[in-house]
Write a protein that binds this DNA or RNA. Structure first.
Lengths: 108, 108
DNA sequence: TATATTTGCAACCAAATAGTAGCAAGTAAG
DNA sequence: CTTACTTGCTACTATTTGGTTGCAAATATA
């Protein structure tokens, strides 16, 4: 088993997905984030550490506080992976489009 | 920590993503799948078990063989989750569109 | 019937993960 | 300067995960 540290690992945990949802809107400190969960500040800090290692978050130091915000670029990687499969569930729609296209050409 | 068994857990492992990639095209047996990897058949079977529990794959029994194929519906869940964030990386593009739109109106 | 193939399941092991507690460093406020 | 606050880091523990081995059940083939 190798150590995996990528965006797919980052979004596997529901707490981390919740953190992503929060810092997508505004930058937040670990203390602020911890207040939104039932778990301890240290636990949230460890989740943040994973997100930082996966480059899912950007950090900005302001005095003794550290603000974390979502880095959207890594989210694109998931989108690009999904792209390969998207055609599979859009197939029916594409087929419908083909039908419409054929109807158009018939009119000519 | 609770036991998580959802699509995000399913796609966290690179081997499982590879399996998904293979069974998206054609249905395959565990034996066929194992031939594509360096790991044992049992290891692949355990990955398949996870995918089944997450309802990412459909199975069809044919004699003593079991064919597994991708169930695309669960993949949509990831796409729906991403949908909330997609606007964030399309923002710049939208702004560019706005610029182009303004140029158009200026011409009038 | 006897044998080989395909598969799932249970037991077990090593590594990773999630969480807690304590501590040190840096910063703000008295 | 002293005290309080915010944070990251290092053990330490419990749980989960990925993998291997062995075995039994079901199916195909001789």
């Amino acid at each position: 088993m190798e150590t995996r540290r990528d965006i797919f690992q980052a979004i596997a945990d529901p707490t981390r997905r919740a953190i992503i949802g929060l810092i997508a809107i505004t930058a937040m400190t670990p203390g602020d984030l911890a207040a939104h969960f039932n778990t301890s500040r240290q636990a949230i800090s460890k989740h943040i550490k994973v997100l930082v290692e996966c480059e899912v978050v950007k950090q900005e130091v302001s005095g003794r506080e550290i603000f974390y915000q979502l880095d959207i670029n890594k989210m694109k990687e998931v989108d690009e992976w999904l792209e390969k499969y998207r055609c599979l569930w859009e197939k029916r729609f594409d087929q419908l489009e083909n039908v419409l296209e054929k109807l158009k050409t018939k009119k000519k």
